[in-house]
Amino acid sequence: MTQATQADAAASFDPLRPKLMRVAYRMLGSVADAEDMVQEAFIRWMGADRAEVREPEAFLRRTVTRLCLDQLKSARRQRETYVGPWLPDPVVEEEEVEDVTLPLMLALERLSPLERAAFLLHDVFGLGFEEVAATIQRDAAACRQLAARARTHVREARPRFHVEKERGLELAEAFFKASRSGDMNAFGAMLAADVSIHADGGGKRSAAIMPIIGFDAVMKVHEKLAALFRANGSKLLRVGFVNGLPGFITMEADGEIQTTALEIEGGKVAAIYVVRNPDKLRHLH
């Protein structure tokens, strides 16, 4: 393949790369795996008869989706042996992303690969069922059923309370200050009665191997953590939206970063999602 041919393939592919990454990441929940799938799609694009492709975006979306469906089979086997709660790789953005928040991505984990693809392509990316059918190689009626089943499973994961951007960022910053300073009165005032903590260390950094549920349990854990933070330090690097939820990135005493995302319901913190697994944080460095 000549350099000119490669340049031509890249020129038509690169503008579509961000859209393809959105599809792949939402399918897989892993930034590294999504990048691999998109790169594999680019390799196939270079080898394709591009003159015969009428709609490059549709062609490449189909390619990426099918690669992700294959990848999901091995990913599920890996997650069966994962240490502690599994959370998707954190993606930190300046603006709130409402289409696929962290709770919704966790709900997608309970779907079959085909249900996940049909739901994302139709309900999130707005494709018609004929296009969904062509992408996942099922007929349109079957795709409607797949999307309907998926919708039933994920309905509860849709955000019920909208938090204004500035208010969300204020809550995230206030949560950081209260949790690190040990001001347990201020910290407790922010929590819902059924608040929960989900910490993903992947067996590579210390983290609870089961979710911590309930106000009293969460307060007890953070009383201990506050003492550690005061003794060893915890530096705020950035406040933003982590997978669509208000949150922040910190540098911890072990020299590693971590992300914290807050699910807000009725002005209170209903769930705390902490990613500590260094493999899931490399792209943030």
Rank of each mutant, 00 (worst) to 15 (best):
M1F: 10
A4C: 05
S12M: 06
D14Y: 11
L16H: 11
P18Q: 11
K19H: 14
L20W: 08
M21W: 04
R22A: 15
A24S: 13
R26G: 10
S30Q: 08
M37W: 07
M37D: 10
I43G: 00
R50N: 10
V53M: 03
R54P: 00
E55K: 14
A58Q: 11
T65A: 07
T65G: 05
R77M: 12
T81N: 15
D99Q: 09
L102W: 05
R110I: 02
L111A: 11
R116E: 02
F125I: 01
G126Q: 06
E131Y: 06
V132A: 01
Q137D: 14
A140K: 15
V154C: 10
R155H: 13
E156H: 08
E164C: 00
L169Q: 03
F176L: 04
R180D: 12
R180H: 14
M190R: 08
A192E: 03
S196G: 11
H198Y: 10
H198M: 13
A199I: 06
A199N: 02
A199T: 12
G201D: 08
G201R: 11
A207H: 07
A208K: 13
P211L: 00
G214V: 01
A217C: 03
V218S: 03
E223I: 05
G233H: 08
K235L: 11
V239F: 00
V239Y: 00
G240E: 06
F241K: 07
F241Y: 15
A253F: 08
I257E: 01
E263I: 00
E265V: 04
A271I: 06
Y273E: 03
V274W: 09
N277I: 04
L281C: 11
